[in-house]
Amino acid sequence: MSPKGFIGENLPGWRPEELGGKLIVIEGADGSGRSVQIELLKNWLEEDGHGVVNVGLKQSSLVSEELEQAKQGNILGPITLSLFYATDFADQLENKIIPALRAGFIVLADRYVYTLMARDIVRGADPAWLEAIYEIAIRPDIVFYLKVSPQVLVDRNFQKNATLDYWESGMDIPLSRDMFQSFMRYQAMIQKQFKLFQRKYGFEVVNGNRTPKAIAREIRAKCQKILPE
């Protein structure tokens, strides 16, 4: 088995060959069915005897509270917000993801650096700047991208909350004063960015417009190939 690598250069203090576990990433917009799939996958893996650790965005012990506060107030500039998220990610990478991989766990990531980069790129950040920041990230063993059409996303968001999320609608970018239209445009921009990433980083694109069961079957079949005996 090839040793795990970083997306770019090594993080100070870590050697890729020490990392035994597997990193599985599920990417997709809110309403794409990510959390359901993560739960199903976790059950399946644990039933099979694998140790599983969940990680996600904005969950670091270092800055998650402050980040949440900043988002509520909408008071940070875009570069500051990018760096705040990068700090949150690096903290989880070093304190959760790498130690778990080292101990042979399967790490299930509910979104990863690709979402962070895509969000910032559609807001005008320099892609080369972001890629150079996130080169410290561990390269996942497999990335699933749950692709759901913006129309279906809207329906699912309405069913769940009867409202669209401010940030997931890109309301901080002057796309449209109409939240519905802003959401549709923003999600289309994100999808376009993921299409570029898909070519560059080799994602598994999963059609998320289907039933959870059908999606789970496809994800399991693909995971099978990377799992340890």
Binding site: P12, G13, S61, A86, T87, A90, D91, E94
Partner: peptide, 13 residues
């Protein structure tokens, strides 16, 4: 809680 990487990132933030 800080590592060299997060120390650097948080000061840059």
């Amino acid at each position: 809680l800080l590592t060299p990487t997060t120390f650097c990132l948080i000061h840059c933030t």
